[in-house]
């Protein structure tokens, strides 16, 4: 081996960002960009946002490990994943409005391909729970026509690929305590408190 290349300069971050942006633009034109992503700083931490051409595919909390999430998307959906903020401009601005207390409903195309079967049915009902309201896991189970499936509703919420936007934080336990949350219970508390205060 040789020590010569310890002198070799690292790649400047600015250069990498510029090249990545240029690649994302060219890849979009050539229809080679299947999943665009960006991060967004919010009061509950940096959220990873990922979208296909169909719509928003994934929202992930830092606790979920953004790199691991992107890795999963590459395996499960498509390896053509690039940081391309432009496709997520609308998503980012709606989320910013939400966290500023100026938006109560999201009006975004969603790509629910990461949720299947019963879980998907549950998720599509969650958007009916209004801003600042909560519903118990049991009540959601009844609403989707399967009152016994309380635990399954819980796991549908726990594996929600689109937290915040699909409001699984509004589903709480029957005794009024909060229950688990993908972003951590603290985040769930913050969101519910924020919605009640608005």
């Amino acid at each position: 081996m040789t020590d010569i290349f310890t002198d070799l300069p690292g790649i400047e971050e600015g250069t990498m960002l510029r090249l990545h942006d240029r690649l994302a633009a060219t890849a979009t034109e050539a229809s080679l960009l299947d999943i665009a992503y960006r991060t967004l700083d919010t009061p509950v931490g940096a959220l990873l946002l990922a979208a296909t051409e169909k719509g928003l595919l994934r929202v992930a909390y830092p606790i979920e490990d953004h790199d691991a999430v992107l890795e999963q998307l590459a395996t499960r959906v498509s390896p053509r994943v690039l940081r391309a903020p432009a496709r997520l401009d609308l998503v980012a601005s709606e989320l910013e409005e939400y966290f500023a207390g100026r938006r109560q409903r999201f009006d975004l195309p969603l790509d629910l391909q990461l949720a299947h079967g019963f879980r998907r049915t549950v998720l599509s009902r969650l958007s009916e729970i209004g801003y600042g309201e909560t519903l118990s896991y049991a009540a959601v189970a009844t609403a989707v026509g399967n009152p016994k499936a309380v635990r399954a509703v819980g796991s549908a919420c726990a594996t929600n690929p689109l937290p915040v936007v699909v409001p699984c934080h509004r589903v709480v336990r029957s005794d009024g305590t909060m229950g688990q949350y993908a972003g951590g219970t603290d985040v769930k508390r913050v969101l519910l408190r924020m919605e009640r205060a608005a």
């Binding site: 790649i11 090249l19 990545h20 060219t26 590459a74 390896p79 994943v81």
Partner: peptide, 30 residues
């Protein structure tokens, strides 16, 4: 893929090509 391997590939392109490296990098990833 780009985040993980982009810097190494750019070093390779630069070492091989000098100033024409960025075009080669973009073409590689495309």
């Amino acid at each position: 893929m780009v985040t993980e391997h982009g810097p190494t590939v750019l070093r390779v392109c630069r070492a091989l090509l000098g100033s024409a490296a960025e075009d080669a990098w973009s073409e590689t990833f495309l």
